[in-house]
Write a protein that binds this DNA or RNA. Structure first.
Length: 240
DNA sequence: TCATTAAATTGTT
DNA sequence: AACAATTTAATGA
């Protein structure tokens, strides 16, 4: 069976180089023997904008992570409309739920920009669960942190003020536990952020400007620098 | 390495 | 949605 032949991990895959391995946060938590096993299985691939990393309904082949770039996680409803849940910046790993149960993927993952995606074969994933305490800690911490993230996302959806929506969505993308590869600067264009948040680019531009005026972030070409993450999380705006 | 040009991104209406 | 201004990336000498 060739369930994900269109995936970049099949078309343009290769062994990860040293830089890419350094961008995989959980490798450092493994013992040497476990790490050797993991690295032997790991592959990376280049995803071009619009490429699907995985599709709803396809059998699980890998546990995925973002080494570079930006992905979006979405699902389709009965009317064929797609609904975006979240963006996945560098350092983010996802799909452990379906990998655990070996069930079909429940989300579509698409590249928003040119990205480098890593994949750990599902059999290696299970081997690590059976052998590595460090790996288990990482996955458990990951599940817990993601639960908090989804609860926060429900709050965000109920907010009407666009400035707050942008601030909270940004805070989620800067989450250092889920996305340790992001660091101080998140590489994202205002257009991409608008797409994730579900607002127009103009409105996002305006929201970012007011966040910058508050010294919460700094706008840079092709990216954003966070100056005060806790302010992003709790920011409240007043109507004009 | 530098200068020129094309492309991408941002700011504004 | 359109346009101008700005920044980066690509090209070639």
């Amino acid at each position: 069976m060739a369930p994900t032949l269109d995936s970049p991990l099949h078309k343009r895959r290769r062994a990860p180089d040293a830089d890419e391995l350094a961008g995989i946060p959980w490798l450092a938590l493994l013992l040497p023997a476990e790490r050797a096993q993991a690295e032997a299985g790991l592959i990376v691939g280049d995803a071009l904008p619009g490429d699907y990393v995985c599709r709803i309904g396809r059998p699980v082949t890998y546990w995925f992570g973002v080494v570079q770039g930006l992905l979006k996680m979405s699902s389709d409803n009965a009317q064929g409309m797609s609904m975006t849940f979240t963006g996945v910046p560098p350092g983010g790993w996802f799909g452990e739920g379906t990998a655990l149960k070996r069930e079909p993927y429940r989300y579509n993952i698409q590249a928003l920009r040119k990205s480098v995606v890593a994949g750990l074969p599902v059999d290696t994933f299970h081997w690590l669960l059976d052998h590595s305490i460090g790996f288990n800690r990482f996955v458990m911490n990951q599940l817990n942190e993601r639960l908090g993230q989804f609860i926060a996302a429900r709050e965000i959806d109920r907010m009407t003020n666009p400035d707050v929506r942008v601030a909270r969505s940004l805070a989620a993308l800067f989450n250092p536990v889920l996305y340790p590869g992001v660091g101080e600067i998140l590489r994202i264009t205002q257009q991409e952020l608008a797409y994730l948040v579900g607002l127009s680019r103009q409105r996002v531009n305006e929201a970012l400007a007011s966040l910058q005026a508050q010294e919460t972030i700094r706008i840079e070409y092709g990216g954003l620098r966070v100056l005060d993450l806790s302010a992003l999380r709790s920011s409240i705006f007043h109507e004009k």
